[in-house]
């Protein structure tokens, strides 16, 4: 590594692992949530890039920013970042990311659902909060919402506290925080899933299969316009 690169790279620190869990969705499908490895980021990027073209429900903004965050993690430009992925039969159905700001404080970045209508985003966001509070043992997690769906899910369902003095790394609007107390209050109704993941299920979740771009766009937009329309 060049001397300059050494200066540009944040110090390497291994975050405690997030133990994989599985969730039975409304469809009966079993979704595995596990930590993505840094070297898996290139598998995730094309799907995230595809969503930057979807101007519905703020997918474009969220995807563009997530792309930058994941690329920053891959190329060693963001410190202490992590990514959790949701997989059904190995196929990517959603991802969440964030980072550890300090031993006490976590920062939530983004949540992307690649399949809709099955609460994949809600499950993944809950897993992210679980990681910060129960595995990184942090006191609180800073959160902002960029979309109305995010606002409704996180701020109202978790009853987050306002943190007007905090400048969240994503900038923009008011910062909010999930405290340990709020987390444990909400846990019963928002954080679910079973551990350990059975071997056969974990085996299928070993390799991330990205979604084909046209399938992905169809999944998230549910557009009614037909080709000949």
């Amino acid at each position: 590594m060049s001397q300059l690169e050494e200066i540009l790279r944040p110090p390497e620190k291994d975050l405690p692992p997030y133990p994989a869990k599985y969730i039975v969705l409304a469809s009966g499908e079993r979704m595995v949530i596990r930590q993505a490895r840094r070297e898996e980021v290139p598998i995730l990027l094309p799907d995230v890039a595809a969503l930057t073209t979807v101007d519905r429900d703020y997918y474009d903004i969220v995807a563009a920013r997530t792309y930058a965050e994941l690329l920053g993690w891959l190329r060693h430009r963001v410190r202490d970042e992590y990514c959790l992925v949701g997989l059904v039969d190995g196929v990517l159905v959603g991802l969440v990311n964030g980072r550890s700001l300090s031993p006490r404080i976590g920062v939530s970045y983004h949540t992307i659902a690649m399949r809709r209508g099955l609460r994949v985003g809600a499950h993944l966001f809950a897993a992210k909060m679980e990681y910060h509070i129960e595995y990184l043992n942090q006191q609180e997690v800073y959160i902002v919402a960029e979309s109305p769906i995010g606002f409704r899910r996180w701020m109202i369902e978790y009853g987050l506290e306002k943190r007007p003095q905090v400048h969240h790394e994503l900038g923009g609007v008011m910062s909010w925080a999930l405290t340990r107390d709020l987390y444990f209050e909400a846990k019963d109704r928002l954080v679910v899933g079973e551990r350990p993941v059975p071997d056969d299920l974990m085996e299928k979740a070993k390799v991330i299969t990205p979604v084909e771009e046209d399938v992905l766009i169809k999944q998230v937009t549910a557009r009614i316009r037909q080709a000949e329309g």
Binding site: R56, T221, A222, R223, I224, R225, Q226, G229
Partner: peptide
């Protein structure tokens, strides 16, 4: 039409 989201 198909029912869903009108998009543009």
């Amino acid at each position: 039409t198909k029912f869903g989201r009108a998009g543009d």
